[in-house]
Design a binder for these strands. Structure first.
Lengths: 367, 367
DNA sequence: CTGAAAGCGCTTACAG
DNA sequence: CTGAAAGCGCTTACAG
């Protein structure tokens, strides 16, 4: 309650000891007799003592705050990340200052500078693709992809891709269209690489890079998935649940039943994945663990760092770990048409769509 | 770059003046001659001087940090809010510390306490429904609904509801099912109230309160919307784009074309709204303005507050404003079946669904 | 117009 | 084991 409660000195006076002794007792550095320490702790608790971070920061050079730098807060993955980091950080006694890059590299640099100016003890960065995080001047933990050179903590995107692929393979899918939107993204390339590697021998795989959909425009160029179904694709493996959602609704809109006639999978288990009909099969990151590792590494680096080396060229430290992804199977993926009988039906909006039954379920485009 | 750059004293020494003069020059309090001030500013810039917030905080009792308290970071609206608040706050020279309530009232209280312990100058709170924000001990701006008693800044949810309703009415819809999930939410009630009030005379309206979908479960009880279509409803007005997405996909899954046979609308213009096929018609809040107003009010309150009144019972100040919502018309809403010819078609998954053409498009359930 | 002093609350050597 | 002192970097009265 009490904003920056009573001061240390008040406790000291109340007990007739020095502020230094109170400080020592409270920090448990052991320079105080057990009884005295106990008495001091009791009084502190009773008075609702909360140390002034400002005072401490000024003395120690540590603010107990870390920055969270994100490429774009609008990213639907942001909530998961922020929540996990906030939990890990506050458990470790750190506050989390947010900084938004708004998708822009210049803004990212500025955001990082602002955090530095605020004397954060360290920062967690989810870099915008292609960004080099260097000589920031404080400990940094990067969350990205194992493929990113340097110290990073990341989900095993490749392994996640393999899980998705194994799942589709086990269902009997042999023609898979992989959908991504950013060939420059390490994360997407890892996921796609994983999918392709697990599917390599058994299936025909094609990758479709889609254009970023202009927000607000909303008129979205259709991905032409109905045609892909007609060509024989039975599964659409998207690198994000956002693409999966786009694929799912486009297929449904074209009158193609999911999962009876085409399976759709995504990545990240975003908020809507279980809400949609049919619910999306996806692979999720263990954000809690990723955040825990990142923050732990950060805290360790902060501890090892000499707070007085303030200036340029200070060590950039980070974690280096890879966390498995978890497959979440829901109703948007099932055995392909070949193995499941479909009652005769006419397709809505048939004008633009070839009836998939008239095309071979697979193989016609095999090399 | 330089972490907590050169100190004030360094500038003072470089110019042979006192630290006090430098401080005065930089803060522009005008106790310094113009030339001197200019020289000082130049040197400060040259040395890359960045004031130590810790030092300043200790002296002034102001940390230049505000807290952002959210009911649940996982909320899909969070990105919009966080982004807008971060921008407004950093423009005003404030950092933003995040605090997650994780949907829990106790956690919310703890999160607020932690922010207080960190000596934030004020906080923006998006309260969990039914929470009383009181005697926090620092200036507070609440973002909620105009219906919430007390000082709040909010979107005009009621007006947004009216806009949605007018839109549907203009298209010719006369049977509207309103979908919400939380009868205790002021926001939802305002939105629904607005919809109903604008529709009152001309249409039949029913409200469907749906169960919160258990995440991970993903098996989601279907909402039974196909049946509603059979009953004659032609429009589904949801209080959130998340519900709208659920409705849209359920309808599509049932073989009901949107928007030809049923229109779907949402609220908030969440990330997926323009991505989905058909893109969602929705009403969005002007988060930028809401955040600007909230932060401005907060900063004003902080300025008026005596930083030494530290303790209990300090004034809780806030904004009080109502910001119009903006209707975003996309393809998920169109004229109802009656006014638009539908080619004959068979419905997929017909087993569970009555063919809507056999039921009256409206009226049969009118009182 | 400018400077010297005091002090915000804390912690860390250094004495006793 | 405990205390007195110094100082982190800043700003605000108060003198000159």
């Amino acid at each position: 309650m009490a904003r920056s409660g009573p001061k240390l000195t008040r406790i000291a006076r109340a007990l007739g000891v020095s502020a230094a002794t109170v400080s020592n007792a409270l920090s448990g550095k052991g320079r105080v007799s057990a009884e005295m320490a106990e008495k001091i702790r009791a009084t502190a608790a009773e008075l609702g003592y909360v140390p002034s971070l400002a005072g401490r920061a000024l003395r120690t050079g540590r603010t107990a705050v870390i920055g969270l730098v994100l490429p774009d807060i609008a990213n639907p993955l942001f909530p998961q990340i922020a929540q996990a980091i906030e939990l890990a950080a506050s458990s470790a006694g750190y506050g989390v200052l947010i900084a938004d890059s708004r998708g822009d590299v210049t803004t990212q640099t500025k955001a990082i500078e602002r955090l530095i100016d605020r004397d954060v003890d360290g920062m967690v960065i989810v870099p915008r693709r292609g960004t080099r995080i260097a000589d920031v001047g404080c400990p940094v933990a990067v969350i990205d992809t194992p493929s990113t050179p340097g110290n990073t903590v990341a989900a095993d995107h490749w392994g996640g891709g393999r899980q998705i692929a194994e799942h589709l393979k086990a269902l009997g899918h042999r023609s898979v269209l992989v959908i991504g939107n950013n060939p420059a993204s390490n994360v997407q390339n890892d996921r796609i690489g994983g999918i392709r590697s697990a599917l390599a021998e058994d299936a025909f795989v094609e990758t479709l890079w889609i254009e970023p959909l202009e927000r607000e425009q909303g008129k979205g160029c259709p991905l032409g998935l109905a045609e892909k179904v007609a060509q024989g694709f039975t599964a659409f493996a998207c690198v994000s649940d956002l693409h999966a959602l786009r694929a799912l609704t486009e297929l449904q809109r074209a009158g193609i039943n999911v999962p009876e006639r085409a399976s759709v999978t995504g990545f990240d288990d975003l908020i809507w994945s279980p809400v949609v009909t049919p619910a999306l099969t996806t692979a999720r990151m263990d954000m809690t663990r990723i955040a825990a590792i990142a923050v732990e590494a950060l805290v360790k680096a902060i501890g090892e760092r000499d707070p007085t080396d303030a200036a340029i060229g200070a060590p950039v430290t980070a974690a280096n770990a890879e966390v498995p992804m978890q497959l979440v199977v829901r109703q948007s993926s099932a055995a392909p048409p070949r193995t499941q009988f479909q009652p005769a039906q006419t397709i809505a909006n048939a004008s633009t769509i070839a009836d998939a039954r008239t095309s071979a379920p697979e193989g016609e485009h095999q090399p």
